[in-house]
């Protein structure tokens, strides 16, 4: 007679609830993606496969403009955020406690804690005041706001990477006659690259997703893809929106997957 061994990790019903949760997480997205390929205008009745909504999205000049603006903004903000976060990570890791350390951590993590809507209205007030003073209405405000918001996300993987890096490697380099700059150039930087890449990707995805802050900071004609979508959602939505959302999801998914591959393969 064979009997199943007593599984200590089994808890009745848990597997069922878990599968239900996964379904709940993915079903709405799946429906959204499926109907982006619908031949009809309905979001609930399947009328055959068609790419017409994708064509419509590509032809839509406004969609093209906001997409390009979103990508440009994400690249710029994530780029700057990654640079300054790398410096900050170099300054704050692998050291004992130093005066002001807690304050630096609090400042870096602050965008994670404060609700976006609070940061949003704060920036709205601040930006309005500067606009009155300087008359400048360019993309600078959005770049600054997104950069600040991306910093904690870019900082995390870089710092994690630095913390797992053996400090003896740089000591060994110094011992082998490398100047501090050479040690950074030949040892620290090459080993930090995966962390920096991961930080940039996280920052990029976060900037792409940021809707509330953008909504409050943007001037006229500075819509990004998310604020454009938010505006459109009030109207009757056609599957063109599904197509845009699907493309957007695909982009995020690619970056996140790449991020996981980088951090997993090269991770400690």
């Amino acid at each position: 007679m064979f009997r199943r061994s007593y599984s200590v990790s089994h808890l009745p019903g848990f597997g069922f609830v878990a599968i239900l949760t996964f379904l709940m997480l993915y079903l709405p997205i799946l429906v959204l993606v499926i109907f982006s390929f619908n031949a009809g205008v309905s979001q609930s009745i399947w009328e055959g496969f068609s790419l017409q909504w994708y064509e419509a999205a590509f032809r839509n000049r406004q969609v093209r403009d906001v997409s390009i603006r979103s990508l440009w903004l994400a690249a710029t903000a994530a780029g700057i955020a990654t640079m300054v976060a790398t410096l900050a990570a170099l300054g704050t890791t692998r050291t004992g406690r130093f005066p002001g350390q807690t304050m630096i951590y609090a400042l870096i993590n602050q965008p994670l804690m404060v609700p976006e809507v609070v940061t949003g209205v704060a920036l709205l007030i601040f930006v309005a005041a500067i606009k009155v003073q300087t008359g400048y209405t360019g993309m600078g405000y959005l770049v600054a706001a997104h950069t600040a918001f991306c910093i904690p996300f870019a900082y995390l993987p870089i710092r994690a990477r630095l913390e797992t890096m053996d400090i003896n490697l740089e000591r060994a380099a110094a011992d082998l006659y490398a100047t501090p700059l050479q040690a950074f150039r030949y040892i620290t930087l090459p080993l930090l690259v995966p962390g920096i890449l991961a930080g940039f990707m996280l920052g990029f995805v976060i900037s792409l997703d940021t809707v509330v802050i953008t909504e409050f900071v943007k001037s006229a004609g500075q819509d990004t893809l998310p604020t454009y979508m938010l505006g459109q959602l009030r109207r009757t939505v056609t599957p063109e929106m599904n197509a845009i959302a699907t493309l957007f999801l695909a982009l995020s998914l690619m970056i996140v997957t790449a991020f996981f591959l980088i951090t997993r393969k090269r991770g400690a």
Binding site: D166, N168, L169, R171, A172, A173, A174, D175, L176, Y177, A178, T179, Y186, I187, P190, L191
Partner: peptide, 29 residues
């Protein structure tokens, strides 16, 4: 500093540069 002394160290955990080949490690100094 350590880079100004005619002294070299063999570290407890070796501290070999993981991104360089054995030959590049040896030639680094």
């Amino acid at each position: 500093g350590p880079n100004a002394r005619p002294v070299n160290t063999v570290f407890q955990n070796y501290a070999l540069f993981p991104h360089m080949s054995v030959a590049d490690n040896i030639g680094f100094g």
